[in-house]
Write a protein that binds this DNA or RNA. Structure first.
Lengths: 248, 248
DNA sequence: AGAGGACATTCAGGAAACCTTCAGACGGCG
DNA sequence: CGCCGTCTGAAGGTTTCCTGAATGTCCTCT
């Protein structure tokens, strides 16, 4: 699943609140595997109880809940002195005014249906900005390939690269799992929205696009000689894809 | 999330006084995240107690409170020797004479409904004038683009630029977050009033206005040659907007 | 070597995101 | 009261992206 560079500082505690079991499980599995400690709640009232008991570092909160809606839950726990940032889950067709004011403070939101990469990226961005952690670096590196999660910049050997949103998400997922083979199914599940109905063949197309932009470059050395960059994206036939600095 | 240049001197302590929980939360979340230490009070009497106890550097005070009004609160705490500046929150339809005399000393006011940028900008301006801090610079720079928070002047390559109030707030928010992509929702939440009910599409319009004034200029060099300025505002498709000196 | 399967590449249509402009509404100011 | 700058919503045009399909290439097993 979404295995990250588990190295990152202390593991954060996250509470997931959603009434749909499938969404809950999806998030729990991913986040747990990504190294977070996860608790869940299926309703607003349960959420308040769980949050006050466990004092999480971050809360993932569906705004549409059977009993108490997400905004009210937020207000209640804030009154109790809990100031953990909230990542709201909203339906795309929610009226705009409902979404208003959601991005103040450390809070943020994603619209359903989301892709896991979106959620994980947002969580990291929030935690990076919220926690005191001075050492937190918005840059992810694999060899001479870098992506900056703040500016969304991508560079190879210092040279800027332009990626489309989906290309960026795919590359980010690969880099987050450097040295680990990811199946096409895994990639589909993380980079594309969870309600995607299409074919896994689209992964091949996007790998191809990515390779052309990232691995098919010529750079000029200090001494003026041109040479191709080392390809970083490897195909593991029958298994999937992986990114890493190739072994000699 | 405003005032991101967290680097700024020592964190100031602020007391927020308002009887509406939603306003309180909005301000607490934003200011806390912006690096301020925040306490709250929901009434005039509570305000006096909290202010005398915590000795804040600045007070945000709604003039319309259920028990003791804001002016009286100010008078009382002044009698107790507390001279922290006050940022008053007033209703737009408050008669002019009520607002009169609010800006004496270090004090200032904003009208409800406000935008977060307005509040944060005023807070910074007040603290800049109040504190000894010699190193505080009212000028924000990105490349050859400068805005002066004291005079509200905007210049590009030395040339003055006229901006409308909303254009200025938008530019200021972008520059305060140089090199970080801001979503349209974030921009809406910070630059527009918190009770805004409209569409996020308005952000696109204002980005367009801003570009025409800021990024679509011709300047004349010392040697008489004309050339276009580098565009500083970048679109990150599917993510948002960002300002910075472009890479290479 | 050949067949079959897995992967790579390319392309075009449609969709989505974005840019720009404009007219009307609104409010401040003379 | 009328003018003027500003704000807002909407429309139209443009660019970029996504997706599915078609075709080509490489690997593997027999």
């Amino acid at each position: 699943m979404s295995g990250m560079n588990a190295s990152k500082g202390t593991e954060a505690k996250i509470v997931v609140v959603d009434d749909e079991p499938s969404i809950r499980e999806l998030l729990v599995a991913s986040l747990h595997f990504a190294g977070y400690e996860v608790e869940t709640a299926a309703s607003g009232s349960e959420a308040i109880e769980v949050i006050e008991r466990t004092k999480p570092d971050l809360i993932i909160l569906d705004v549409m809940l059977p009993d108490i809606d997400g905004f009210t839950v937020t207000r209640r726990i804030r009154q109790e002195g809990i100031d953990a940032p909230v990542l709201f889950l909203t339906a795309r067709d929610d009226t705009q005014d409902k979404v208003m004011g959601l991005t103040v403070g450390g809070d943020d939101y994603v619209t359903k249906p989301f892709s896991l990469e979106e959620v994980v990226a947002r969580i990291r961005a929030i935690l990076r900005r919220t926690r005191e952690h001075v050492e937190d670096d918005p840059v992810i590196r694999v060899g001479d390939l870098e992506i900056n999660e703040d500016s969304h910049d991508v560079t190879r050997a210092g040279r800027p690269i332009d990626l489309s949103p989906t290309e960026y998400k795919l590359l980010r997922y690969l880099m987050d799992n450097e040295g680990r083979v990811l199946s096409k199914a895994q990639i589909l599940d993380h980079v594309w929205q969870y309600d995607w109905g299409g074919d896994a063949a689209i992964v091949e197309s996007y790998i191809s696009y990515l390779r052309k932009k990232v691995d098919d470059l010529e750079v000029t050395d200090e001494d003026g000689t041109k040479h191709k960059v080392q390809p970083l994206i490897e195909t593991k036939r029958g298994i999937g894809y992986m990114i890493r600095v190739p072994r000699s």
